[in-house]
Write a protein that binds this DNA or RNA. Structure first.
Lengths: 142, 142
DNA sequence: ACCAAATAGGACTGATTAAGTACTATTTAA
DNA sequence: TTAAATAGTACTTAATCAGTCCTATTTGGT
């Protein structure tokens, strides 16, 4: 099944549990809010921090907080932070990564499909997922 | 990285190597045409046959052939045949599969995003990937 | 009738990745 | 100085993927 990893799913929950505030939330608080185990929540927070989606304050009274609002964080950013990105095939990313030696002409087509999906993931934000407001439609032009 | 499995990638190559004809191609012929090892090609052919994308003729002079033309086989069909489908999250498929016990409101939103991606995968066919003709655009309506 | 060439269906193994946990160092406010 | 927190890394187990192999069945040709 083509799907996100569980840690990526959890990442959405973690982001939803955070605020863009000067009062940071500790990994333990996030764990409680989300229902995740503390080490797991901690791992995800570190990863999101490393990707720049969160900021952290160290030491006592420290913790994590968002650096931008949820409506400015796209699904793609989260997937990129947790899994390194999204690409249907290797060749959609890198032409040289073709599995065939000679005659495969898929890469251009795969790239285009990949772009469509990427665009969808970039267009939808964490707050969209929560708000359930934005209508999304797909249009194919021949 | 959110991506298709290698076997799924190979499946596209396998389909491209086949024709909708009364002269079926054997697994070995497909292997030669694609550059895959024969057992691997065979495994993929069996799986595509099982999913109904191909038909097979057994016995000597037997082999595999397409039951519909490449422009009628969508990416989603291939992914479904090889990986069982595509769903960003468990909860996008099944509401009961929420990782949280109480307050997660993502599922509706995830479902919508999932639908967009699914639609993209359904709208593009194997021949589109090869032909590189069809223009695809995504439009977000607020 | 027999043989050779195919598909059908499992079963098996090794490699890679994911998930979860644990440990140590560093930072910082009280 | 101490307690509470992040930072970074390493480890272990589980799950999935990739690839191969074996046996049974089918079927056309000689």
């Amino acid at each position: 099944m083509l799907k996100m990893s569980k840690l990526t799913e959890y990442a959405f929950m973690v982001i939803m549990a955070l605020k863009k505030s000067d009062v940071p939330a500790s990994a333990e608080q996030v764990a409680r809010a989300t229902g995740l185990e503390t080490p797991t929540a901690s791992k995800i927070l570190k990863q999101l921090k490393k990707a720049g989606l969160l900021a952290a304050k160290r030491g006592a009274t420290g913790g994590y907080f968002l650096v931008k609002s949820k409506q400015d964080i796209s699904l793609h950013e989260v997937i990129k932070a947790m899994e390194g990105g999204m690409s249907l095939t290797d060749c959609a990313e890198d032409d040289a990564a073709c599995h065939l030696t000679d005659a495969c002409y898929m890469s251009a087509g795969m790239k285009r499909v990949n772009q469509v999906i990427l665009k969808a993931l970039e267009s939808v934000t964490v707050s969209d997922i929560l708000d359930d407001q934005k209508k999304i439609t797909l249009q194919i032009k021949p």
